[in-house]
Design a protein around this nucleic acid. Structure first.
Lengths: 120, 120
DNA sequence: CTTGTAGATTGATGAGCGTCGATTTGCCTG
DNA sequence: CAGGCAAATCGACGCTCATCAATCTACAAG
């Protein structure tokens, strides 16, 4: 998990037959280590079909959505949905707000911005 | 893992106190099940810092990049890098081409398109 | 044919994930 | 206070993951 970048050597260390370079020297990653870790964290959270659809619902719906509305949308048990929402919360993609018995979830503005910008 | 969508009921099944709706009926996910699965597959592959940086290098570098140029960029063993490249291949993000001893990798055009479009 | 090298594969290990049933927590209402 | 409900947490299950050392597979050069 140690991605110590900026240690690029444009002339690779591995020996190779003289006069036969396998390819042009490569560009080293522009994305800094921290950004890569952050974006990978978001991508990982989106790496489950249910969580991706959860984010999709929350994004399409302006405002906050009650969990009790989300449960019947998916064919999974309530604790499993709660687990997925927790993952999205831990990834900083969504946030929640309690009001009495119900919990309301919403997508944090610009949470997907960095990854989106890198992808396009 | 069964996300049988289009079975949305706009009037949720769960009982609730009459006259006290917890929220407006929610929109059901626009993304079809297949698209969600496909995009989650791509997102999952990008959900590792090293793989994300690998894709970043390959994207920034026009043309194909030799594996021997990639190895010294990251602080991981060669089999581990090979493993990550395989994951990216299986996710349909990159492809490879062998020429003699060397293997060249490149990002498949438009492989990230769907996810990118959904994110923005 | 033998040696050396690039890259992929295998096997093992320890950690994490998705799922569920059961339980707990917190709040509202009689 | 007692009962009920929404949502979160717990505990357990089987499975996948990232990682490495060791091995294997092609291929090139002497």
């Amino acid at each position: 998990m140690s991605v110590d970048l900026p240690v690029l050597e444009l002339t690779p260390k591995t020996k190779r037959p003289a006069g036969e370079p396998c390819c042009e020297p490569v560009v080293y990653p522009d994305v800094q280590r921290d950004h890569a870790i952050r974006m990978a964290e978001v991508a990982k959270a989106l790496g489950d079909p249910i969580r991706l659809q959860l984010v999709d619902v929350l994004r399409k719906h302006a405002g906050k959505v009650c969990v009790c509305e989300l449960v019947p949308l998916f064919d999974i048990a309530q604790p499993t949905l709660s687990h997925h929402l927790k993952k999205l919360r831990e990834a900083g993609i969504v946030a929640s707000e309690r009001q009495g018995l119900w919990a309301y979830y919403y997508v944090i503005p610009d949470a997907l911005k960095e990854l989106s910008a890198w992808l396009s």
